[in-house]
Design a protein around this nucleic acid. Structure first.
Lengths: 225, 225
DNA sequence: ACCTGAACACCGTTCAAGT
DNA sequence: ACCTGAACACCGTTCAAGT
């Protein structure tokens, strides 16, 4: 009871002083819940029981806040584990990045809309370059590899549309006639058993398929030189 | 002089009746100039010499307008040329899509923020699936290929950050120390001659490098089956 | 000196009043 | 019946007034 009273007290009154950490935590929580559209300086302030202008003591504007949010979640990606070959190390790290993005679905759009890399992203890229170099890649091939992997290095699925999680409905006849190949493909996926868990596509499988396609191709180019 | 007077007249007075086409053209032009942040219903209306509410007679809301803008520019992608093998056909089409995206730099973020594919995008995907199928790909491999190519099918570069066009500045010593691998890579790019046109990276080369890496990998998988 | 309410310049969209 | 100005509920941020 004392605990609850204390918590209520802390929630309603601005007892704990505002800090950049508390603002960041509230902003990330809001974005996780409602997406980036639901994120406004006014709502962050409200969630913290504070007047909007109070935020500007700790953050110079919303753009800087978004940068710091990106930095915070990129910092959640697991560090590279020692003792494995370059491909396994890259693979594990990218899959860890993907898990981070699944926790923060708003992040990919925000990262793409930033114009400059944040410090944590630079550190991540630096580390990934080091793994390629230690794996015997030349500077040039490492450079091309970074471009070719692109945002996938940070776990981006690079799909055209978000995963829906719902069984694709059988298209009405006039749609099936306009898009025959698409219709064939969708019906093949629906009826397929095997690797597909539940309805729709197995996103994890498709992600790893594309990742391995790229890593295998890069390995071949390394060995050819 | 009559021409100029007529044009001025048309520009200031709402002589030519408003239509969905004129609204779309104005919206695309505004986005091309100032990016998607500069695109508002009010500004589109102002550019057309019309009161904001007049737009809502032809478009039900901004989201639908964005959908129609996407449809309009995806329609600019060249149709597939007959008579070439699947790889050349896909390659040419993707490069045409990339040229479209370079004309409309705002488009990739807008397309990614849409939740459902527009009709023109569905038609494009249907056509691309047909090319893979005609090239001897099974339904399953075609399906995986679509996921693996992802937004790159529409010409997306999938880079983490936009091309800057400016020579990367030599990092100050403390940055070079924190990011040694990144520093090595950047300095290697700057000093490199060869395929690099002017400062920075050759984006067209890197795009085709990644595209071919994927297409070659897919071809190998097709042949292995 | 510090904090903050009101205000500014926007935004997409609703709605009722005017023709 | 049609059109549209004012209004509503937001937004990020400035700034001056209050303590």
């Amino acid at each position: 009871m004392v605990d609850i009273a204390t918590q209520l007290d802390a929630a309603t009154q601005p007892r704990t002083p505002l800090s950049k950490e508390r603002i960041l935590a509230a902003a990330v929580a809001l974005a996780d819940e409602g997406g980036v559209d639901a994120l406004s300086m006014r709502k962050i302030a409200h969630a913290l029981g504070v007047v909007p202008m109070a935020l500007y003591k700790h953050v110079s504007n919303k753009s800087e806040l978004l940068d710091e949010m990106v930095d915070a979640i990129v910092g959640e990606i697991d560090p590279p584990a020692d003792g494995a070959d370059w491909k396994t190390t890259i693979r594990r790290r990218v899959l860890s990045a993907r898990r981070m993005l699944l926790r923060h679905p708003w992040a990919s759009l925000v990262i793409e809309s930033r114009s400059d890399p944040t410090p944590a992203v630079m550190a991540y890229m630096d580390s990934m370059i080091g793994i390629f170099r230690a794996g015997g890649f030349t500077i040039d091939l490492t450079h091309h590899a970074l471009h070719a992997m692109g945002s996938r290095l940070l776990g981006f699925s690079q799909e055209l549309f978000e995963a829906t999680d719902q069984e694709p409905a059988a298209p009405p006849p006039e749609v099936a006639e306009r898009f025959p190949h698409l219709t064939e493909l969708v019906s093949a996926i629906s009826h397929e058993g095997g690797s597909v868990v539940g309805p729709g596509c197995d996103d994890q499988f498709e992600f790893e398929f594309a990742l391995d396609l790229l890593l295998d191709g890069l390995e071949r180019l390394r060995d050819a030189a």
